[in-house]
Amino acid sequence: MGRGAYLLGTLAAALSTGAAAQTLGDPAYGEYLSGECTTCHLAAGTSNGIPAITHWPAADFVAALQGYKSKTRPNPIMQMIAGRLSDDEIAALAAYYESIEN
């Protein structure tokens, strides 16, 4: 899972922001990250102009976000959002959205 890279990324983020980093292995981090998604994607999973992402299989979720990150999938907003997510953050979001309860 690249825990080393995750830790480094988290540390770098913490150093650059001064925030207290307690993210390693914390499922709450995936939920926190999902706050960036729920502005547009309804947590209840209904689709209205913007696709539902709740309960996607994690592998599909990762593939989609990696596609946006590499700009092989179109949509400038998603390319921007995914572009600054680390692989571990994408994995955390995928796990969160696969398991979310509504």
Binding site: T38, T39, C40, L42, A44, S47, N48, I50
Partner: peptide, 14 residues
């Protein structure tokens, strides 16, 4: 435009 409609529903739900 349709994306903006989805966003409106999303943010007001948020």
């Amino acid at each position: 435009y349709n994306e903006s409609l989805g966003w409106y529903t999303g943010i007001t739900t948020d």
